[in-house]
Amino acid sequence: MLKYIIRRLLIMIPMLLLVSIVVFTLAQLMPGDPFGGEIDPTKLKPEQIEEKREQLGYNDPILVQYGRWLSNFVQGDFGKSISYKTDVSVLIKQRLDNTIFLTILALIITYAISFIMGLYSGKKPYTIGDYAINGFNYLALAIPSYVLAIAFIYIFAFNLQWFPSSGSVGMGVEEGTWEYWMSRLNHTLLPAIVLGAFSAASYTQFLRNDIIDNSRKDYVRTARAKGTSESNIYNKHILRNSLIPIVTLFGFDLAFMINGAVITETIFTYPGIGKLFLDSVGKQDYPLIMTLTMMFAVIVIIGNMLADILYSLVDPRVKVE
């Protein structure tokens, strides 16, 4: 097992290198200096800019620049943002907190909803409740997240005024207090539901079909024959088997959430890294774009690896090569 995990970790390295090359090439293709956060063309004369360029190493061969960027990146030095005039790492730290909070909330909602609905549908297939849940699933899978977000803001934020439509925390709330956390939760709930709806629907279907499949298997018949109560059969025997595929999907969720966060955070003007990324592209803030792109790719790679490892951990039938 340990061997497998180590091998899986080692495969990550060439992938990460390849991604870094792509990101660096992209930055080179962009007009202007990709690392120009420290040069202010409005204040400096052309000669001074040239001097500064030389000093910062922009005139070095490409490979040297790549090596320098990579080694800085690995050491956590991401350069300076052009538009915000601060270190990229500081900017990201400010926002990362919000995105993590949003993602965790979205994951909790996803798993809670799919768990309850999937279990119900799987226990009582082809009943009215099952059909209603199925109908809900089809809708959730068909409505794009941005349409759902707009509709939610219109209904829940503007008309019913249950939730605020933007931001991550109310004005003038003191950090660390009970009100502060409630305000944060209140701000994050709506985007989290939007972010989780699609996965919730697909997991519900997944769980439902798996429970129905399992309930026809021999071990369930054996359990019934021995007189195990119906609720014990579902909650203990079947659920344990049906949860396996769902658990392993957790790794892929990370990747999915990143794509989703870019859209959802922007619509709700929620100050997380997804919105930061879009803003940085709009402002052509290359150091920020490069770091965030790289970061997102790293998270996806780690997520995929996690999915593989979880899969082999949870299901002993999966052969470890």
């Binding site: 992938m15 390849l18 991604v19 792509v22 992209l26 293709l29 962009m30 007009p31 990747a255 990143i258 794509n259 870019v262 859209i263 990324f277 879009l278 592209v281 052509q284 774009i289 965030l292 792109t293 997102f296 790719a297 996806v300 790679i301 995929n304």
Partner: peptide, 23 residues
């Protein structure tokens, strides 16, 4: 294929489109 699949879709489309649209 493995490589293409790990690139976060929206992030890379936005970055790539943003660059290419200029030149």
């Amino acid at each position: 294929v493995d490589f293409v699949l790990i690139l976060p879709f929206y992030v890379f489309v936005i970055a790539l489109n943003g660059i290419l649209v200029k030149n």
